[in-house]
């Protein structure tokens, strides 16, 4: 009796749509004709489509960069959070999670101002003062290309991905730090004290004692970042628009899916994209969990 409500809703709003998506992906469902069974033709088309492959590589790169940046950064911030007096921890935690508490639409609006042209915060405060080819503090010394004044973050295809990763790092690092902080606070104090008595201190205490104790949080946060990375939509959509920026440099898989299905009406292709995502998604998480299990064993 207690299990039935969830099972019922799950079947209606998860299992049924999944089967429908599978079925739609095997049919020709576009504005010109509907409902004709075409087998794996939609999949063949999707996997030979350069834009899909671009979106796939963008999404993979975005997810990988997020994992490599946010996990260490979150751990570091959590170590600093742990070291401040308890009465300040609520306020600092609140500030750290502020970015994740903010809806992505608002965040993108903020980041539009951060990355926007010459007067954007990043250029006005860091890039131009540091790397301007003539007047920058470092520019003339490190041989910056002549004429360089600022980076066009949202137009130059080389910098669109770094801009998106910076946005994600800013958004997630504080939350990951808070999750580490929660688990860190419930670690057995004796283990840490024993390690300190054995001479572990500073960075070695954090990297050799505490980080291994928190390895399942690394795996949990990693899985969370993978799910968020592959499903990333709102931030890029609001910041770059439907096109995904110059040369599709910021086109994400879900944005491409949204365009195919809801903008152009190619429902079969859109569902084939969605189903194609599944092995990537599940594979990455299973890989992460397998690594974690092996470590625990």
């Amino acid at each position: 009796m207690f299990g039935l409500p969830w099972l019922g809703v799950w079947m209606l709003f998860w299992l049924w749509p999944l089967f429908e998506a599978l079925s739609l992906s095997l049919h020709k469902n576009d504005p010109s004709g509907a409902g004709v069974f075409v087998g794996l033709s939609n999949y063949r088309y999707v996997w030979s489509d350069a834009i899909f492959l671009k979106a796939l590589s963008n999404t993979s790169l975005y997810t990988l960069c997020n994992l490599m940046l946010i996990l260490p950064l979150g751990f570091f911030l959590s170590a600093m959070l742990q070291s401040i007096p308890k009465r300040w921890q609520l306020l600092v935690s609140l500030i750290l999670v502020l970015p994740i508490l903010t809806p992505p639409s608002v965040l993108s609006w903020i980041f539009l101002m951060v990355f926007h042209g010459k007067q954007g915060l990043l250029n006005a405060w860091f890039i131009t003062p540091l790397f301007h080819y003539q007047h920058g503090w470092l520019g003339p010394w490190i041989g910056v290309k002549e004429g360089f004044e600022y980076i066009n973050w949202l137009k130059d295809p080389h910098y669109i991905m770094p801009a998106l990763v910076m946005q994600a790092s800013w958004r997630w690092a504080g939350m990951v730090a808070f999750l580490f902080h929660c688990a860190w606070s419930s670690l057995p104090i004796e283990v840490i004290q024993a390690a300190k008595l054995d001479g572990a201190q500073g960075i070695s205490l954090y990297l050799r004692v505490i980080a291994p104790l928190l390895r399942h949080i690394f795996a949990f946060c990693g899985a969370m970042l993978i799910i968020d990375g592959v499903a990333y939509f709102s931030g890029a959509y609001f910041l770059l628009g439907q096109s995904g920026g110059t040369g599709n440099a910021g086109l994400m898989l879900v944005t491409h899916l949204y365009n195919q299905g809801f903008r152009w009406g190619y429902l079969g292709d859109a569902c084939a994209i969605a189903i194609s995502l599944l092995p990537l998604w599940v594979g990455l998480i299973v890989l992460l969990m397998t690594i974690k299990r092996k470590e625990v064993c």
């Binding site: 709003f13 998860w14 999944l18 429908e20 998506a21 499903a231 299905g261 569902c271 969605a274």
Partner: peptide, 24 residues
């Protein structure tokens, strides 16, 4: 088996079912 159903619901997000969800 019943736990795996919940894991599947976490791992496969709504984005995958976006189009059928509207139709359903």
């Amino acid at each position: 088996g019943l736990t795996v159903l919940a894991v599947a619901a976490v791992v496969v997000p709504a984005q995958v079912m976006a189009i059928p969800l509207v139709q359903i």
